[in-house]
């Protein structure tokens, strides 16, 4: 589903209305940052991803090729493509870079440690999927986008997206199971 203002934002953005562009940035940049962070675990690269995504958006508007609808899908797709292309040959070197901040004040340090461990495992597993599988898993089950938006992001019919989800989840489960056999739980 489009955000309530998306259509108005897009129309105003095509006129390079600064308020609309600022609203779009304020609304979507935290989401894109989170998306990139979840996939990469690197603050700097996540910021770069956001900057590049919005830069491409502006250039597309300028060239008259910007999105006419589904702005959210467009931005996620652009961010995903940027990440995929940047790490086409090898996964990001920062997959294990989640810092673990444990202190005496932490309410549940063991849970924090476990969550960090699971994040790292999942990231490594995600990067063993195909780009589309990775994209559909993140958008559908982490970003909680509905199937229509995911379909618009992947530029596929909803049915094809569901089939892709099946394959992606099965592949992810296999990879995680294989990792469990090989990697001991540090906690």
């Amino acid at each position: 589903m489009n955000s309530p203002n998306e259509r108005e934002w897009l129309q105003a953005a095509q006129r390079f209305d600064p308020e609309a562009l600022a609203a779009i940035y304020d609304y979507y940049s935290p989401r894109l940052y989170a998306y990139a962070m979840r996939l990469l675990g690197d603050r700097d690269v996540a910021e770069e991803c956001v900057a590049e995504t919005f830069s491409r958006f502006l250039h597309a508007l300028h060239a008259g090729h910007g999105p006419q609808q589904h702005l959210q899908a467009y931005l996620y797709r652009t961010a995903h493509n940027w990440i995929t292309d940047r790490y086409r040959r090898q996964p990001p070197p920062t997959l294990n870079a989640d810092s673990i901040h444990l202190s005496a004040d932490a309410p549940n340090p063991e849970a924090d440690l476990e969550a960090t461990w699971m994040r790292q495992r999942l990231r490594r597993a995600l990067w063993q999927l195909t780009p589309e599988q990775r994209q559909v898993i993140l958008l559908r089950f982490v970003e909680d986008l509905d199937n229509e938006i995911v379909a618009a992001t992947l530029q596929k019919p909803v049915g094809a997206v569901k089939a892709l989800q099946h394959r992606a989840l099965a592949a992810l489960r296999r990879i995680l199971e294989r990792e469990v056999e090989n990697v001991p739980n540090p906690s």
């Binding site: 590049e52 491409r56 250039h59 090729h65 006419q68 467009y74 652009t78």
Partner: peptide, 11 residues
């Protein structure tokens, strides 16, 4: 990098 969409809506 620096590759905004060339046609249609999609990147």
């Amino acid at each position: 990098t620096a590759q905004p969409p060339r046609q249609g809506n999609g990147p």
